[in-house]
Simulated scan of single mutants.
Amino acid sequence: MSADPDALDGFDAFDAFDYLATMVGIGAADGRCLFVNSTLENLIGQSRRTLRRGSVFDWLVDSARLRETLASVVNGEVSCGRFDGVLKRPASLGPAADLPVHVIVSQMDHAERVLIELIEVEQQTRLDREERAHGLAQANKELVRNLAHEIKNPLGGIRGAAQLLAMDVQSKELTEYTQVIIHEADRLQALVDRLLAPHRRPHVVGDVNIHEICERVRSLVMAEYPRGLTVERDYDTSIPEFRGDREQLIQAVLNIAHNATQALAERIAAGDAEIVLRTRVARQVTFGRKRFRLALELHIQDNGPGVPEAIRDRIFHPLVSGRENGSGLGLTLAQTFVQQHQGTIECDSVPGRTVFKLLIPLP
């Protein structure tokens, strides 16, 4: 790398770093931050401009090893130093958001600068998990659709036969039995319709403003829970509109918000329940094995008890629910609707903080 130091002001010499999936920064001998790439900016949760006003030592939970390694590289004692550390993430995401990383500090052609690369320890595991989840979602979708069709046809016959019986029987007791059959057939029909809805509903594609969607969902939730629940907004109003199905996305966000309110039942009764709707732009992100220049991040966060550990890895599977009377379809439908926008949903949950993150590519 033979760039002039002054080129840092325009970052022209380092544009290529923005295409890397790993986090890269450039620091001065005294620890001043001279440059960060888009991946580091995104994962650390602060803008490039803000990071450049600070120090590279602020990136890690424990900066001692970074100070020591940076000094050794700048002084020429070693050309490259490696160690494991923990990247600090936004406090709003909680302590579990801090990210284990492998840190590599290398010499550059300019003696007063060092190249700092941070590699997620869990990166490959996360990518493999995303790929498995996507493949499983596609398989589940086909299974559910086929199963729903197989149930739907005989269900109509059962209901029709029960109606005919109800017309002929004279006994009040037998009539009640036929009404039970009809009622249960209708309930199963409604369940089948919900299973088939994502596949049969036509796409109404138009310009979508994510904050209009958030406000619609917020108004619906606040109307249902006027007391005991606060729905906070934390919006990045610079996020552009994108092409999508507005009604599908409203339903996806509403399903997640409804799940949150149900998990917050005790806190709503106590009067300290909270849901946060947070929007951000992520740059140069990879999900579903695809890389996107820009993506919308919508965080739906609550202060409930968290997703039960027994179902945490299966919450997007159909008919899996943490509630006794839950249908287990809300998150499945939400994931399906978001995937139809080339996006995905991720979940990070610990007691006291659950975050569902919707990722959707932006133009």
Rank of each mutant, 00 (worst) to 15 (best):
F292R: 03
L294P: 05
S321F: 05
Q335K: 15
V281L: 14
L362G: 04
E324H: 05
V355C: 05
E346C: 10
T279Y: 11
R283M: 11
L296Y: 04
Q284E: 14
R278L: 15
P308D: 04
T336Q: 02
V350I: 14
V307H: 02
C347Q: 14
D302I: 01
R283I: 10
T332Q: 07
P318Y: 00
I311S: 07
Q342M: 05
Q340A: 13
V338G: 10
L294R: 14
V285S: 04
K357H: 12
G330A: 05
D302S: 01
Q335G: 11
G352T: 09
R353W: 06
V281E: 15
L331K: 00
A334Y: 00
R353Q: 07
A310L: 11
V350A: 14
R278P: 05
K290G: 09
A310D: 04
E309D: 14
Q342P: 02
R283W: 13
A334N: 04
Q340I: 06
V350T: 15
P351E: 09
V285F: 04
I315M: 00
F287Q: 08
L331T: 01
A273N: 03
G306M: 07
R314V: 02
P305M: 00
L331W: 00
L277V: 12
I275D: 00
R353E: 02
Q301S: 10
F356D: 00
V338Q: 08
V276Y: 03
L294C: 11
N325V: 08
A295H: 13
Q335R: 11
G326M: 08
P308C: 03
A273F: 04
I311M: 10
T344W: 03
Q339R: 15
Q339T: 12
H317F: 11
E309C: 13
H341N: 09
G322M: 04
P305T: 02
R291W: 10
G304S: 07
Q284A: 12
V320H: 06
